[in-house]
Structure formats: structure tokens, C-alpha cells
Amino acid sequence: MAEVKVFFKPEVEHFLNELIYILYKENYFSYLENAIDYKDKIIDFIEENISNFPYKNTPLPLYSLGSKFIFYNSNSRTTWYVFFENEDHQYLITYITNNHTEIAKFLKP
């Protein structure tokens, strides 16, 4: 089987790094290390599942975010939506958001 390669747009990397500090600053996590672990679990899910998790086609109003998306339920309250493009076994993560945003109304896990 071909090796799967996952790349993240710089804006996505920036978002994920900022997420750590937001989660910690807003007291979602008491320790910075826990916020880092949370972010790492999102990345691990993407890297381990992007090639075999059933994806959905992105609704037309959100198509500029990426043509496909998968979702990750990090807990009972939060679902992460991961938008991407792919060619063969290479995946480019183009955008990440969660169900607490306005655009989530266009998405269904």
C-alpha cells in the first residue's frame, strides 16, 4: 500500500497552534499540557484516518474551504470538521473548524 502523506496549509498550522492558547486561556483546560494533548489528538486523528475515513463532499457555500471534509468528535460537545483536497495518497488540509461556529450549520457529521 502506498504511503499516505498529509500536509497542512500554513493557516491551518497557525490555527492549531493558537487553539492551544485559546483553550488554556479560556479555561477549557487547567494545564497547558492538556491543551497541547487535545490539539495533538486532532492531528493524530487526521493523520491516521484521512485516507480511510468516509469523507463528505463540501456543500457549495463552503466549497472554498476545501472540496471534501471529514469530522472528528473530540468529546460529546465538540465536533471538528477537517476540510481537505487530495490527489492519490497525498492530502492537503485546507481548513479546520468546529460545530461552535456559524459555518457548522451547513455541515452534518
Rank of each mutant, 00 (worst) to 15 (best):
Lys5Asp: 09
Phe8Glu: 08
Lys9Trp: 01
Glu11Gly: 03
Glu13Cys: 12
Glu13Tyr: 00
Glu13Asp: 08
His14Trp: 04
Phe15Pro: 12
Leu16Asn: 07
Asn17Asp: 12
Leu19Gln: 03
Ile20Glu: 06
Ile20His: 13
Tyr21Cys: 08
Tyr24Ser: 10
Tyr24Val: 12
Tyr24Thr: 10
Tyr24Ala: 14
Lys25Leu: 14
Glu26Lys: 15
Asn27Trp: 00
Asn27Tyr: 03
Asn27Lys: 15
Tyr28Gln: 13
Phe29Val: 11
Ser30Leu: 14
Ser30Phe: 12
Leu32Tyr: 11
Glu33Met: 09
Glu33Lys: 14
Ile36Thr: 05
Ile36Ala: 13
Asp37Glu: 14
Tyr38Met: 04
Lys39Thr: 07
Asp40His: 07
Lys41Met: 12
Ile42Cys: 09
Asn49Ala: 01
Ile50Pro: 04
Ser51Trp: 10
Ser51Ile: 05
Phe53His: 12
Pro54Leu: 09
Tyr55Gln: 06
Lys56Gly: 03
Lys56Trp: 09
Asn57Val: 06
Asn57Cys: 04
Pro59Glu: 09
Leu60Met: 00
Pro61Asn: 02
Pro61Leu: 05
Tyr63His: 09
Ser64Thr: 06
Gly66Ile: 02
Gly66Pro: 05
Gly66Asp: 01
Gly66His: 01
Ser67Trp: 01
Ser67Glu: 11
Lys68Val: 01
Phe71Leu: 02
Tyr72Trp: 06
Asn73Glu: 07
Asn73Ile: 00
Ser74Cys: 07
Asn75Tyr: 00
Ser76Gln: 11
Ser76Leu: 13
Ser76Ala: 12
Arg77Phe: 03
Thr78Asn: 05
Thr78Glu: 07
Thr78Val: 08
Thr79Arg: 10
Trp80His: 13
Tyr81Thr: 08
Tyr81Gln: 05
Tyr81Glu: 10
Val82Gln: 07
Phe84Tyr: 11
Phe84His: 06
Glu85Asp: 14
Glu85Trp: 00
Asn86Ala: 05
Gln90His: 09
Tyr91Arg: 02
Ile93Met: 02
Ile93Glu: 03
Ile93Phe: 01
Tyr95Arg: 11
Thr97Phe: 01
Asn99Ala: 08
His100Asn: 13
Glu102Met: 03
Glu102Leu: 01
Ile103Arg: 09
Ala104Tyr: 03
Ala104Cys: 07
Phe106Gln: 06
Phe106Tyr: 15
Lys108His: 13
Pro109Met: 05
Pro109Leu: 10
